[in-house]
Design a protein around this nucleic acid. Structure first.
Lengths: 199, 199
DNA sequence: AGGATCTTGGAATGGTCGTTTCAAGATAGC
DNA sequence: GCTATCTTGAAACGACCATTCCAAGATCCT
């Protein structure tokens, strides 16, 4: 009976993610979405609802597609500090080179851009932070169990430090920070956490 | 011959700083500025120019009034790590309590909000980062001279770490992070940098 | 094939944006 | 007090904003 959609909503949302991620929600108009996706306003509104709903969907997709896999891999990698180093290496690589260079982290961008007021977005930001911290905490607990941490170092506190450090990386990368400099900075932090009495 | 201004441009700019700081430039309309300052559009445009120029002026004033004094005090305090701890304590206090609680840092907000494209704003962000890093570097050099750092720790690299940490504090505070948690996190980082072989 | 039901295209909506314009008001020198 | 020069108030500007509406087109079921 009914007609069927003449486009792939998932592919459209992917395009929308990139728009909001790179430009921010404030600087992206519906006209920009229409132009970038190729579909028209009617289909857009019928499929996703208004702009804010579309932004929320894009933010959810970003977390699902980018943050979650990275967090999962970090938490499931049992090597300890090397796993954390690899996590940051991957982060810096995405942030400073390739297609998404200088785009920063869409979640971090949302956090500072005052683009909220939307309670659902706020909750997502908090949840994202918790997930990051938990993944780091898991990896650091493994590191401690393998004797990779300085004696007396608390994995929980160290996870907090590294989470804030990750935010710093995301922020500075959007401003065009150098990948090598960021890597060196992260290495210094990891080294400090892992420092122990000279044997 | 001419008439004289019927208001104090400096007081007006102070009001504008608070508006842009708290709400962000995207969510603040000229009408909001007019309402908050009490003066009308003609005087606004005649005195400051357009919105972007007004935002730049407000950003400059913020750096001058908030960042610069804090950086100066940090750099001129010769105590080393205690000076850095006090810097972060003051930062967290402003970010989490009092009139400016949950406002974040106006410069950091500008960085993530993608509110640039304006090269002058971009240059200001870079300059701000450099100033923060330099102040931390100076304080850390003093700390190293007093034997407060872990052996082999490089003040330059440590300054990079703490600068990114400060960005993290500014970001999370805007999302409502707890002051005590932030203090504990900073303490962990400082302790890690200062850790040395058990004597 | 017929008809019900959804999608699509494109114009149109009211609202808000930043900015401009211009007459009226205020000041300082003559 | 008169005039030149700036400031102030308030209305008005065109452009863009997110959103809605409706006729036309496409699809599936019977």
């Amino acid at each position: 009976m009914p007609d069927i959609k003449h486009f792939d909503p998932d592919a459209v949302l992917e395009t929308v993610v990139r728009l909001f991620w790179r430009e921010g929600v404030a600087r992206t108009g519906i006209q920009d979405v229409v132009t970038a996706t190729g579909l028209n306003r009617s289909s857009l509104y019928a499929t996703f609802g208004g702009k804010q709903e579309l932004y929320r969907a894009a933010l959810r997709r970003y977390v699902e597609q980018w943050s979650r896999p990275a967090f999962r891999q970090l938490a499931e990698d049992g090597r300890g500090l090397p796993a954390i180093a690899e996590f940051f290496d991957g982060l810096i690589a995405v942030r400073c080179s390739g297609e998404y260079a200088r785009w920063g982290c869409m979640v971090v961008n949302a956090q500072a851009g005052a683009e909220n007021g939307d309670p659902e977005v706020g909750a997502l930001l908090d949840h994202h932070h918790e997930q990051l911290r938990d993944a780091l905490h898991t990896a650091l607990t493994g590191a401690a169990a393998q004797g990779q941490l300085a004696p007396g170092a608390d994995p929980g506190s160290a996870a907090d430090v590294l989470a804030l450090l990750a935010y710093g990386v995301n922020l500075r990368s959007r401003a065009g920070a150098d990948a090598r400099a960021l890597k060196a900075t992260v290495a210094t932090a990891l080294n400090a956490l892992g420092a122990r009495p000279a044997a």
